[in-house]
Design a protein around this nucleic acid. Structure first.
Lengths: 235, 235
DNA sequence: TAGTGGTCTAGACCACGCA
DNA sequence: GCGTGGTCTAGACCACTAG
């Protein structure tokens, strides 16, 4: 058995669908018909068809059967890695510089960035990530000391705060905003001329309802792409 | 049985992992231990643990057991909607204009964009999506006639090609690239001054190994953000 | 109501990888 | 070696739902 049988069934049904042999809306054979065709048990067929259903290629309805789905594709999936591993995956040397660190009672702007209550205290960091000695990304981060009290005694001089937080504070949800922007205050730090467009990623992370951190990552547009390969999901 | 048992097992193990109770590297109980704990068969436990492995939360090794995986960096999920529904969700009036349409043997550049074989034919489209009468997004699309022969006889004068393709051609995977760019050729069409940064989304879609379509969407940066809220779980 | 998929069982054999 | 997970079987009962 070089290849699992359920995998072979899945691949053959998938090929029928992708070739157009079984067009959208077509009812594919019942499970018991596959068990006869492949001389196997129902569990094996079921596993193959469930994989196709998870992949969004078919829809299964009790009593009616399984049908080829009309492709949905409204939404997609993108992976966003943390900066250090991003640089590492490009096979370039990673460098990190802390530009500034401040501990303060949250200003009005801080409270808006991080959805904080009045009177909360934060650590504000600015740092630069380098690849092969060249500026790769500018990071502007707020950390809530309510969520991460240890951040108050951490200098962040040697290691970037992203990995530090990730290793300590469990998070349950995050919100991303991605946009293009003209390099403003970041231009000088990144060694850019003014008109250079940048890719800006804003991320707010929460543990339950409590805000943990907010970060603005600015990448020189020419030097960076978000890349992802993905498959349609269930939905 | 309101909830399948394998689902309950999956949820309880996932909770242990996300709470930090079982930290990265921790070996979780063997399948036979779960069968004792839940008084169920091995298949049921296996299904639950396979789901967690698919989601990237655990790694399973023969003889050794199953282990909590270290977080893969900050991998995340972002939804990318198609342009028409994007405009609709902003509660603005959607408009569509076909700028050009050509059918041709694939040029070298076309072949690179769409990973096509020599001698393939394509339909090349340029169109503009408007919101409340203002340019919202510029679309530059290639369609492989091998994958979508009907595109040869479709004018695309009234309806955007994205939805047309989605309704007809099933796809199994796609590749996205997102970057910031200075408005170049797109500037005039979008009614922009030259230095305006744009958010550029490139998407290549495949059915199995066969390329279907490639599209470059250019959004004026100030007018557009990708926004997503997500939770950790499936990678 | 009858037939489908969803779930589950109590076994089994095998491949792999750590000893 | 030997124990793990990977796969598979030949049944079973149940929930859902189209007819």
């Amino acid at each position: 058995m070089s290849e699992p049988l359920h995998e072979r069934i899945r691949a053959e049904v998938e090929a029928r669908i992708l070739s157009g042999d079984w067009p959208p809306g077509h009812r594919i054979p019942f499970e018991h018909e596959f068990t006869a065709q492949y001389a196997c048990s129902r569990m094996t067929v079921s596993k193959a068809l469930c994989e196709l259903a998870d992949a969004g290629l078919i829809e299964r309805r009790r009593k009616a059967g399984s049908f080829v789905r009309r492709p949905q594709g409204q939404s997609a999936v993108i992976e966003i890695h943390d900066v250090a591993s991003e640089v590492a995956s490009l096979d370039r040397a990673y460098g990190y510089t802390l530009l500034s660190r401040a501990r303060r009672r949250a200003t009005a702007q801080d409270r808006e960035r991080l959805a904080l209550a009045r009177g909360a205290t934060v650590v504000a960091l600015r740092c630069r990530h380098d690849a092969d000695g060249l500026p790769f990304c500018l990071e502007d981060r707020l950390i809530s000391l309510d969520a991460a009290p240890d951040a108050a005694s951490e200098s962040f001089a040697a290691d970037p705060p992203g990995a530090w937080l990730l290793a300590r504070i469990p998070w349950t949800s995050a919100e991303h905003r991605i946009r293009a922007e003209r390099a403003g205050a970041a231009a000088a730090t990144l060694g850019l001329g003014q008109p250079t467009p940048c890719l800006v990623i804003e991320r707010r992370t929460f543990a339950g309802e409590a805000p943990v951190t907010q970060v603005i990552l600015t990448y020189p547009g020419a030097a960076h792409e978000l890349i992802a390969r993905f498959s349609p999901g269930r939905d």
